[in-house]
């Protein structure tokens, strides 16, 4: 469904070049929920923009549903970290969710149905006429998720979507993502810097190294499919997995000569 082969990205400015991504290879099968975790500054956002067709890679290629990516792929929806800037303040919640559908050529009745269904799915059935800025941060990110859902994507990319919300909201939103994935089976790639979040959410975790970035590890998460914030996180297997990922990331930082990951 999503294949990344030998992806390389070098930023060139007048007097220096920065190798953000050195050699990234991994793939996500149809219906999988994969978390991509890496230390801060490892180029996660750069990688995501290359996958979303918003940034051209220096080398290698990205394929979505078998087709090489040269612009935003039609079957893909992206949920950005900065929900406040990703939602349009001049549109109501419903209009925000509906806009991509209008440009996808959906009829009026179908648009209305999709907007209502996806808002209900994220628990916001009652606020279609509010403006995003009238809502809390967590609710705004729900709107952004509803917009992605309504688009009926084949692949969903999420770029640290919960980095800016409080802990309780974050736990609720994590469970929402699991529930939606369970129900729709949409292929999901979830980028995060939070190791616990990656292990809790993912069916698989891809660990990135420090910059210049390569894939450090790719491990399946063999936790029960039914996740629970208290029970799952208390499981010995959860602790083992998070310790392993933590170790990988620390090793990567040490190799890069930055013990704090600063």
């Amino acid at each position: 469904m999503l294949e990344v082969r030998g992806l390389r990205k070098v930023y060139t400015s007048r007097d220096r070049t920065v190798e953000a991504l050195r050699d990234i290879t991994f793939s996500v099968a149809a219906g999988e929920l994969v978390c991509l975790v890496g230390p801060s500054g490892c180029g996660k956002t750069t990688l995501l923009k290359c996958l979303a067709g918003l940034l051209g890679p220096t080398g290698g290629e990205v394929r979505v549903e078998g087709r090489p990516v040269s612009g935003p792929p039609p079957g893909m929806a992206v949920v950005f970290q900065e929900y406040g800037r990703s939602l349009f303040p001049w549109m109501t919640v419903a209009q925000n969710v509906e806009l991509p559908l209008r440009h996808k050529g959906r009829g009026r009745a179908e648009r209305r149905r999709l907007v209502a269904e996806s808002l209900a799915a994220v628990g916001l059935a009652h606020t279609p006429d509010a403006y995003p800025w009238q809502l809390s941060g967590g609710m705004q990110q729900r709107v952004a998720i509803a917009r992605a859902l309504a688009y009926e994507p084949h692949v969903m990319l999420m770029d640290e979507p919960f980095a800016a919300v409080d802990a309780q909201t974050r736990a609720d939103l994590e469970d929402l993502i699991r529930t939606l994935w369970d129900r729709t089976g949409v292929t999901t790639l979830f980028v995060t810097h939070d190791i616990d979040e990656a292990v809790y959410l993912g069916e698989r975790v891809v660990v990135l190294s420090s910059s210049p970035t390569v894939v450090q590890d790719d491990l399946p998460v063999d936790l029960p499919r039914e996740r629970d914030q208290l029970d799952t996180r208390a499981m010995p297997r959860f602790t083992e997995l998070r310790t392993r990922v933590y170790g990988e990331i620390r090793a990567a930082q040490r190799a890069a000569g930055r013990p704090d990951g600063a």
Binding site: K49, A52, G53, L54, G71, P72, P74, M76, A77, V78, F80, E82, R85, S86, F88, L99, P100, H103, K104, R147, Y151
Partner: peptide, 14 residues
């Protein structure tokens, strides 16, 4: 806003 612009592009707005 670059994020708003990228959002629009990622949803295929011309």
């Amino acid at each position: 806003d670059p994020v708003a612009e990228q959002t629009a592009r990622s949803y295929g707005l011309g």
